[in-house]
């Protein structure tokens, strides 16, 4: 098993054995769909409190990895561990109870429920914590994501950007220790994506959860993440700090190319 080389401020170098307790990790995960090798032996560990970027070209298996981590697809082989427990074949709600929250690439809200109800479902169904005041929590989250004004509107009536915020609020309402975000900046302009960056930084600070973020917006990823994991065709191409990944020849060749040179 390749040792993770996390070196960001919040990440501590740990062997995967001792890391097993407080982390969410995929180990040598393989996922095939009728001959399509979506994932071919990918290992990744997410610590609470760190922000990790997951990037790769279209179809490289990013969403699939998130789906395996959150229990939506059982992997063809390999294991998924969450906080010291093997959750490889557990149902998504069990994994959610252990503290994994997520959003979807194509927003999947509870369309006809109100915004408040969407967040409330997260609060009353997420990780169990003693003495939570669900109503107060929901109010706080609505406020934090500037959703109080539309709290009683049906989720599908909101504009796209607000729907993305509802989805993040719903995931956070479940008191996750790990938050998996699938392309949260998709369709956003620069200003909106800057705001998203602030939001995610704030979330890490206030909730202390580890964030695994998939996005094609490299500007965002490079500024936000302590560690980046690059996938290509279902295998890990590189992992490391933004600087390391940026410098990696393979990454530049296969994927980043011009986009990065412009940025640097």
């Amino acid at each position: 098993m390749p040792a993770e080389q996390g070196q960001g401020p919040a990440a501590v170098v740990q062997s995967s054995e001792t890391a097993a307790d407080g982390t969410l990790s995929a180990r040598e995960v393989v996922k095939h769909f009728r001959g399509v090798h979506a994932l071919d032996g990918v290992s990744l560990t997410l610590q609470p409190g760190e922000i990790v970027g997951l990037i790769g070209p279209n179809g490289s298996g990013k969403t699939t990895l998130l789906n395996v981590l959150s229990g939506i697809y059982p992997p063809t082989s390999g294991r998924v561990w969450c906080r010291g427990r093997d959750v490889t074949t557990r149902k998504p709600h069990v994994i959610a109870h252990l503290g994994v929250g997520r959003t979807f690439q194509n927003i999947r809200l509870f369309s006809h429920l109100t915004v408040r109800q969407n967040v409330e479902v997260g609060s009353v169904s997420g990780r169990k914590v003693e003495g939570v005041d669900h109503q107060a929590d929901v109010d706080r989250l609505l406020d934090r994501f500037s959703l109080s004004g539309s709290a009683e509107a049906q989720a599908l009536s909101l504009p796209y950007g607000a729907q993305r915020r509802v989805e993040i609020a719903r995931a956070l309402a479940g008191r996750p220790l790990f938050l998996l975000l699938d392309e949260p900046a998709a369709g956003m302009n620069e200003a909106e994506s800057d705001q998203l960056l602030e939001t995610i930084m704030g979330v890490r600070k206030d909730f202390g959860c580890g964030v695994l973020i998939v996005d094609h917006d490299l500007r965002l990823i490079m500024r936000l993440c302590e560690r980046i994991h690059v996938l290509a065709e279902g295998v890990t191409l590189a992992t490391g700090t933004p600087q390391e990944v940026r410098a990696d020849r393979q990454v530049i060749d296969v994927f980043l190319g011009d986009a990065l040179k412009d940025d640097v």
């Binding site: 959150s70 149902k91 929250g101 509870f110 109800q117 479902v121 479940g174």
Partner: peptide, 24 residues
């Protein structure tokens, strides 16, 4: 009720309800 709310969430989208922690 809470169960009722969870069930309505599953009506809207069973998969994302599951991922939100609802035992559908």
């Amino acid at each position: 009720s809470r169960v009722g709310l969870r069930l309505q969430a599953s009506r809207e989208d069973p998969l994302s309800a599951e991922s939100t922690g609802v035992s559908v």
